[in-house]
């Protein structure tokens, strides 16, 4: 991948590849990366432990990376074109958030970035996304489940965005300039995702017997992972203490208040399904994941891992 394609001058106009890697100015996706945080003040605020800030940013970044990938799997598979585009747009927003958050994590503490061969053009956020094993990812388990039907996507996007929006509303006050800016931007995007999922939730609940049955099945299947979203990991506690992060336990009431509005409109009772336990108390934030994440990463990372020196 590092070797450019050579053509003799006379066949240059014959080759579809000529110029691809030479002048990318007319391509929307260039072959070189810009630093997503270029020009942003990435100084670590006073009194904040760099490793704590990095791991905290990694947690939020991994949530959006994994959720984005799962939602992107809906592209060309949604029930109709409008929802295909809607889900793709939601995935794109989350991918943008992931990129900024992983870049922020790398900038705060370079030692968390996997080492790639000397001269690899992969930027740090890509090294984090494509060269970590499942047990190194810190995402909540709700994000990683294998996709189900459209009702499952609706419930998952609803639970995820209700929770994340409640977190981001508070994260706007972070003492870390980057996290505060990502949150301020993310709030606008997540509000849109939440309203989209909430409207579909109500629509499916009041649609046909079949749509309601499917919605309830998805809701009962995902609800056991809701409490994990509000567990306080020691890193989150330390980040909150330092004024850069938000303790998720403190937004539970706000998030459930919003969720209750949706459930009331859908005429659905709060689920009583018990929470899904971790393994010896360890859950997604500790790097304890289910098998689906390993499979997802195997697919997502295979090309980057096969070509660590690749230029895209």
């Amino acid at each position: 991948m590092t070797e450019h394609i050579h053509t003799s001058p006379e066949d240059e106009h014959e080759s579809a590849y000529s110029g691809l890697l030479v002048n990318d100015a007319h391509w929307a996706f260039g072959t070189d990366f810009e630093d997503p945080l270029a020009g942003v003040d990435t100084t670590i605020p006073d009194g904040v432990d760099a490793a704590t800030l990095a791991t905290y940013a990694l947690m939020l970044g991994d949530d959006s990376l994994v959720m984005s990938h799962r939602i992107s799997e809906w592209t060309s598979n949604a029930p109709d074109l409008e929802d295909d585009i809607a889900l793709s747009n939601i995935a794109l927003d989350l991918l943008g958030q992931a990129r900024l958050l992983l870049a922020r994590a790398a900038k705060a503490d370079e030692s968390i970035v996997p080492r790639l061969p000397e001269g690899s053009p992969a930027p740090p956020e890509d090294a984090l996304a494509f060269f970590r094993e499942a047990h190194q990812l810190r995402n909540v388990r709700l994000a990683e489940l294998v996709n189900g039907d459209f009702a499952e996507a609706t419930v998952r996007v609803l639970l995820f965005s209700v929770w994340r929006l409640a977190l981001f509303e508070r994260l706007r006050e972070s003492r870390d300039h980057v996290l505060a800016a990502v949150a301020a931007k993310g709030v606008k995007e997540l509000a849109y995702h939440r309203d989209y999922a909430a409207r579909w939730f109500v629509t499916l609940a009041h649609g046909t017997d079949e749509s309601r049955r499917r919605l309830l099945t998805a809701y009962d299947a995902l609800w056991p992972l809701w409490p994990e979203l509000f567990d306080t990991h020691p890193v989150e506690a330390a980040a909150a203490e330092a004024g850069v992060g938000v303790d998720p336990a403190t937004v539970r009431e706000a998030a459930e208040g919003v969720l209750d509005q949706v459930l009331a409109a859908a005429d659905i009772e709060r689920s009583e399904a018990p929470r899904r336990s971790g393994v010896l108390g360890r859950t997604g934030r500790d790097g304890m994941h289910g098998e689906p994440l390993s499979r997802m990463l195997a697919e997502m990372q295979s090309v980057a891992r096969a070509h660590p020196m690749g230029q895209w």
Binding site: A25, A28, F29, E34, R99, L100, G186, E189
Partner: peptide, 22 residues
């Protein structure tokens, strides 16, 4: 040049940057 992203994941940002440089 200082620019601001419209959406976090907007793929047009890279093209804007390249166009400005060109």
């Amino acid at each position: 040049v200082d620019i601001t992203p419209t959406y976090s994941g907007c793929p047009a940002m890279a093209a804007m940057r390249d166009d400005l440089v060109r």
